[in-house]
Simulated assay, not measured.
Amino acid sequence: MKVEVGKIVNTHGVKGEIKIKSDSDFTETRFQPGEVVEIEREGKETLEFKIASYRMHKGLHMLTFEGINNINDIEYLKGETIVQERDHEEIELGEHEYFYSDIIGCTVFDDEDTPIGRVIEIFETGANDVWVVKGDKEYLIPYIADVVKDIDVEGRSIKITPMEGLLD
């Protein structure tokens, strides 16, 4: 199964380096040199690239691809989405760890089983992830033990106990 791992937001320099805004988990593994990513161009071809280099710069993931040495060879892909095979043998999930693709799309319920909305995005903040939940309003739910009580990946549901003011 392929999952979205990021979006090309711009190029950097003239040697074909690109800036990626990541939508993924485990980027340090997914973006390692030698890993393969695909760009599925809507209504057009699917392009496959092997990562030649990876670094972080100002909060963005910077990649170069093998065989791409010039901005003109990659600039036309600005705005495109990058996908990758989900399964990585080297990624072992610990207890209370999930792939972003398992969480995004889940319905979030409070402790009285009232639906709050669906997880539409995940932000990495350093201390913990923050889930963007879209319901009648947009809520920011921290992924911490005090708030998130149960995650049912198969049932696509998450139960939370909101802290005071979290859903106001």
Results as ranks from 00 to 15, higher is better:
residue 92 E to A: 02
residue 20 I to K: 03
residue 126 G to A: 03
residue 34 G to C: 07
residue 71 I to T: 11
residue 85 E to V: 12
residue 59 G to Y: 00
residue 30 R to L: 11
residue 155 G to I: 00
residue 101 S to G: 08
residue 98 Y to K: 00
residue 89 E to V: 13
residue 63 L to T: 05
residue 105 G to L: 03
residue 151 I to L: 15
residue 67 G to S: 07
residue 31 F to T: 09
residue 72 N to V: 09
residue 101 S to N: 14
residue 113 D to E: 15
residue 117 G to V: 13
residue 119 V to M: 04
residue 160 I to G: 08
residue 120 I to L: 08
residue 4 E to H: 05
residue 14 V to N: 14
residue 18 I to M: 01
residue 162 P to L: 01
residue 126 G to V: 14
residue 54 Y to I: 02
residue 152 D to R: 13
residue 52 A to I: 11
residue 14 V to E: 15
residue 16 G to C: 12
residue 97 E to A: 07
residue 78 K to C: 14
residue 5 V to Q: 08
residue 85 E to A: 08
residue 163 M to R: 09
residue 102 D to W: 11
residue 131 W to K: 02
residue 149 K to P: 06
residue 154 E to S: 11
residue 2 K to Q: 05
residue 157 S to F: 15
residue 22 S to M: 03
residue 102 D to C: 04
residue 50 K to P: 00
residue 57 H to L: 13
residue 146 D to C: 14
residue 120 I to C: 10
residue 140 L to H: 10
residue 38 E to W: 09
residue 45 E to W: 06
residue 167 L to C: 05
residue 66 E to D: 09
residue 168 D to R: 14
residue 6 G to I: 00
residue 39 I to P: 01
residue 162 P to D: 03
residue 36 V to H: 02
residue 27 T to I: 10
residue 7 K to H: 01
residue 97 E to F: 06
residue 146 D to H: 13
residue 71 I to M: 08
residue 152 D to C: 10
residue 40 E to R: 07
residue 75 E to C: 04
residue 167 L to E: 15
residue 117 G to Q: 05
residue 98 Y to V: 00
residue 109 F to I: 12
residue 160 I to N: 06
residue 57 H to V: 10
residue 55 R to N: 15
residue 146 D to F: 12
residue 47 L to P: 02
residue 16 G to P: 13
residue 167 L to M: 15
residue 47 L to E: 06
residue 103 I to V: 09
residue 64 T to G: 01
residue 140 L to N: 10
residue 103 I to P: 00
residue 116 I to C: 00
residue 65 F to A: 00
residue 77 L to M: 15
residue 57 H to R: 15
residue 75 E to F: 02
residue 44 K to H: 14
residue 96 H to C: 07
residue 39 I to L: 15
residue 91 I to V: 15
residue 141 I to K: 02
residue 25 D to K: 04
residue 84 Q to Y: 10
residue 7 K to D: 05
residue 9 V to W: 13
residue 62 M to Q: 09
residue 81 T to S: 04
residue 19 K to P: 01
residue 146 D to Q: 14
residue 62 M to N: 06
residue 116 I to F: 06
residue 133 V to M: 04
residue 76 Y to S: 08
residue 13 G to M: 01
residue 76 Y to D: 13
residue 11 T to H: 03
residue 19 K to I: 14
residue 34 G to W: 11
residue 145 A to R: 08
residue 3 V to E: 10
residue 106 C to F: 05
residue 9 V to P: 08
residue 137 K to I: 01
residue 140 L to C: 10
residue 135 G to I: 02
residue 26 F to Q: 07
residue 85 E to G: 09
residue 145 A to I: 09
residue 15 K to F: 05
residue 60 L to C: 06
